[in-house]
Computed example of a mutant assay.
Amino acid sequence: MAIAREQVYFTAFLLLLSLSELASSKSATEDPIPAEWPHQFHALMFMNRTGNLQKLDLWYDWSNGRNFNIIQNQLDHVVTYDLEWNNGTSFIYTLDPSHPTCQVIHVEVGILRPNWLDGATYLGQQRVDNFLCNVWEKVDFIWYYEDVLTRRPVKWIFYSGYTAHVMTFEVGAVLEDPNWQAPVYCFSENEKENNSPILRPAVPGGVLGSLMRGISARETM
């Protein structure tokens, strides 16, 4: 009886081991999926658009339905502010006292959802900027590189070649509320409003916001 009982235990052990190996094998063959964006974060990025360099501060705040791109071209004192709200309204403006500008954009899509990379096509692994990254492509529009170890974004490339290199990525960082207020001249009746210019920057420097709005628009097609 003792021998029979041991045989049962041994058989059960082999069965569990086989199931474990099967699960591990299945897990190993499944394509990884990109991490969802944190609901709030701050990223400092350097952008390259056909040799034109920009510094960009991205403040993503899904919890409050808003997204902010603060852009400065290389060796240019003018800073462009691209403020997006989840109701589809965006304000793209400068605060240069000598020539303040603002354009208001209305689109049918809001800011990117945290899971905007759902459904992206996995392309494998590639070493980028000294990081081993998983790579995905989304709707033939953006190529997204994520660090294998930390799952932080490392690099994005848009279909146009416009490239983002992520320098810092602070999860949970939030820009204080007063900084989200567009200047008063954005609400003047004389300011020009545009309806759905999704893929065209309204002022120099507003490229990233326009492209990100393009991703949201393509997802709704």
Rank of each mutant, 00 (worst) to 15 (best):
A2D: 11
E6K: 10
E6R: 11
E6S: 11
Q7N: 13
F10L: 12
A12G: 04
L16Y: 07
S18G: 07
S18V: 11
L19Y: 11
E21A: 13
S24I: 09
S25F: 07
K26T: 14
S27T: 13
S27C: 13
A28C: 09
I33K: 09
I33M: 13
I33A: 14
P34H: 03
A35G: 06
A35M: 08
Q40K: 10
Q40M: 06
Q40R: 11
L44R: 07
M47C: 10
M47D: 06
R49D: 10
T50A: 15
L53V: 11
L53T: 08
L53Q: 12
Q54G: 07
L56H: 03
W59V: 04
Y60P: 01
Y60Q: 01
S63D: 12
N64Y: 04
G65R: 02
R66Y: 06
R66A: 00
F68T: 04
F68E: 06
Q72G: 02
Q74W: 07
D76W: 01
V78N: 00
T80L: 05
T80K: 01
T80W: 02
Y81F: 13
D82C: 02
N86W: 01
N86C: 07
N87P: 03
N87Y: 05
G88Y: 01
T89K: 12
T89H: 09
P97M: 05
S98H: 14
H99Q: 10
P100A: 08
T101M: 05
C102K: 02
H106K: 13
E108W: 04
G110P: 04
I111M: 06
L112K: 01
P114Q: 07
P114C: 08
P114T: 11
N115A: 15
D118S: 15
G119L: 09
A120G: 07
A120R: 04
T121P: 06
T121L: 15
Q125H: 12
Q126S: 12
V128I: 15
F131E: 08
F131Q: 09
C133V: 11
N134A: 10
W136M: 10
E137G: 11
V139T: 11
F141T: 06
Y144A: 03
Y144P: 00
E146P: 04
L149R: 14
V154A: 06
K155R: 15
W156N: 07
I157F: 01
F158C: 04
Y159I: 11
S160W: 04
Y162H: 09
Y162V: 02
T163H: 05
V166I: 15
V166K: 02
M167V: 12
T168W: 06
T168A: 12
F169T: 10
F169G: 07
E170H: 13
E170L: 13
V171N: 09
G172W: 04
V174E: 06
P178A: 08
N179G: 14
N179T: 11
A182R: 05
C186F: 05
F187P: 04
F187S: 12
E189N: 15
N190E: 14
E191Q: 15
N195D: 12
I198S: 09
I198F: 13
A202T: 02
V203F: 02
G206V: 01
G206C: 00
G206K: 00
G206P: 02
L208D: 02
G209M: 01
M212E: 14
R213H: 06
G214V: 02
I215P: 00
R218M: 10
R218Y: 05
E219S: 10
M221L: 13
